[in-house]
Each structure stands twice: as structure tokens, then as C-alpha cells.
Amino acid sequence: MADSVFIAFQTNDETRPIIESIIADNPKAVVNRMPAMVKIDCPNRLVVRRQSIEARIGREYDLGELTINLVSLSGNIDEDDDAFILHWD
């Protein structure tokens, strides 16, 4: 089994569309809801797409804004203006 990467956010209205986007873009993602916090594990690789979030919130989104509600993550990061990727390969 491939090692998992993870990303965790505070539970709030700002992160709901972000989490929805991640689930839609990563079919293998497993969502764990804990008190006040959502942790998403995914084997090997997880992608957060700017366009998926923008489609849900109806405004321009800068992936740097992720840090406002981010709780923790694990994995190597590749990031550009369109996608934020966590991976172990």
C-alpha cells in the first residue's frame, strides 16, 4: 500500500467548498471528521485545484488563502497558481 499524504482544515464555512473540491478531485481521498477539524488522507498524492474552488465559491481564489484555515499537512509540496499538490513520490 502506498503511504498516505494528508491535509487537515478547521471546520468552518470557508473550508466547506475547499473540502468539497478536494473530494471531487481526489476519488481515493478518505475524509475523517473530528471535533472542529477535518482531516483528509489520500494514498500517495492529493491535489487541491484553484478552479474547482472558484467554481464553488463564485469568486477569484488564491491558493495562498489555504493557509488561513489550514491545520496540518504531510507530504512533499508542489505548488503553483493553479494547483497545490501533496505527494510522496
Binding site: Q10, A36, M37, T67, V71, S72, L73
Partner: peptide
């Protein structure tokens, strides 16, 4: 405490990276 904790933790995730 949840609030200051998560506020700090959002920085921590940057520090971890």
C-alpha cells in the same frame, strides 16, 4: 482555546512544510 490553537496551527502547518 480551539480558536487560538487553530490560529497558531495554521502557522504551524507552514512551519512544518
Amino acid at each position: 482555546t480551539v480558536t487560538f490553537g487553530f490560529s497558531a496551527q495554521s502557522d504551524e502547518s507552514r512551519h512544518m512544510t
